[in-house]
C-alpha cells in the first residue's frame, strides 16, 4: 500500500529542487582557477617531511592525521551502533551484551536462512580464497605509503577475508578469527593502541600526534606504517565484526 501523492507534496519537492539548483549553479560553474598552494607544498616538501611517496597517505596519516582519528571514531561508533540496533534487537546499549532477555528469534531466522542458501561451491571457494584475501589485505595495509592503499582500504579487504573464512570455514574451528568475541577484543585493543600512538608524542616531548619514531632515529615513514597497521587492524576487526553479527553468529 502506498500513500497518496498530493499536490502539496509535489509542490514541496519542486520547491526544494528549484532552490537547490539555484544554489548549486554558481558553485559548480565557477571560473575561479583551482588554487595550487597546497599542491606545490606537497610536491616540493611533502616527501621530505613525511617520508612517504604516496602524497595522499602523507596527508591522510601525517598532515591531517587528526581527521583520520575522527573518522576512525565515526567508524567505531557506527559499527557498535549498527550491531546494537540490528543484531541484538537493539538492546545492547540499553542492557549490554550477553543479556539473556534479548530477542532470539531473529538469530534463528537468520541462521537457518544462511544454512539453506549454502552450497558446496560457496564453501570450497570462500574457504580457499579467505587466506589469500587476508594476505592481500595486509599487503594493501602495509604498503599504503608507497602505493595506492592504506589502513582503511586494507582493513576492508581484511574484513572481507574474515567474511570469506566465516562462510567457508567448517564447524571444526580451524580459525578463531571468525569468532565475534575475538574480533571485539581485536577492535578495542587496536582502538586503545591508536589513542596511545597519538599520545606517544606527548610522552617524548614532541607534542600531540608527533612522529615519535622519527625522534627515536627511525625513518620518518615508520609512523605512517605504524598508523596504517593499527587502523587496518581496527577497521578489519570492526567491519568483520559487523558482518559476522549480520550473519547471525555474534555469540
Amino acid at each position: 500500500m502506498r500513500s497518496k501523492i498530493t499536490g502539496l507534496f509535489l509542490f514541496q519537492v519542486f520547491l526544494c529542487l528549484v532552490t537547490i539548483t539555484l544554489v548549486l549553479i554558481p558553485l559548480f560553474w565557477t571560473d575561479i582557477p583551482w588554487p595550487t598552494i597546497a599542491r606545490d607544498h606537497m610536491e616540493n616538501f611533502g616527501m621530505a617531511a613525511s617520508g612517504a611517496r604516496n602524497m595522499v597517505s602523507a596527508i591522510y596519516l601525517g598532515y591531517r592525521v587528526f581527521d583520520t582519528l575522527g573518522e576512525t571514531i565515526v567508524l567505531l561508533v557506527a559499527v557498535s551502533g549498527t550491531i546494537g540496533i540490528i543484531a541484538h534487537g537493539g538492546d545492547v546499549l540499553a542492557k549490554g551484551f550477553g543479556d539473556p532477555s534479548r530477542n532470539e528469534s531473529l538469530y534463528q531466522e537468520k541462521t537457518t536462512l544462511v544454512k539453506k542458501q549454502r552450497t558446496a561451491l560457496l564453501e570450497v571457494v570462500t574457504g580457499k580464497l579467505g587466506p589469500v584475501v587476508l594476505v592481500f589485505g595486509f599487503y594493501v595495509m602495509l604498503f599504503g605509503h608507497l602505493s595506492p592503499g592504506g589502513g582503511f582500504q586494507g582493513g576492508v579487504v581484511v574484513a572481507s577475508g574474515i567474511v570469506f573464512l566465516a562462510l567457508g570455514g567448517r564447524a571444526d574451528g580451524s580459525t578463531r578469527l571468525t569468532e565475534a568475541g575475538v574480533l571485539a577484543k581485536l577492535e578495542s585493543i587496536s582502538f586503545l593502541l591508536l589513542i596511545l600512538a597519538s599520545l606517544s608524542g606527548v610522552v617524548f616531548g614532541g607534542g600531540f600526534f608527533a612522529n615519535t619514531l622519527a625522534q627515536a632515529g627511525m625513518p620518518e615513514v615508520g609512523f605512517i606504517v605504524l598508523l596504517n597497521a593499527i587502523i587496518g587492524l581496527k577497521v578489519g576487526a570492526g567491519i568483520g565484526f559487523m558482518c559476522i553479527a549480520m550473519l547471525g553468529r555474534a555469540e
Binding site: 583551482w34 595550487t36 597546497a38 599542491r39 606537497m42 611533502g46 602524497m55 595522499v56 602523507a58 596527508i59 591522510y60 598532515y63 591531517r64 581527521d67 583520520t68 575522527g70 573518522e71 582503511f152
Partner: peptide, 11 residues
C-alpha cells in the same frame, strides 16, 4: 594533481 582533495574525500 592536488592530493589534498583526495585525502579529504577518503575521510
Amino acid at each position: 594533481v592536488d592530493p589534498v582533495p583526495q585525502a579529504l574525500m577518503l575521510t
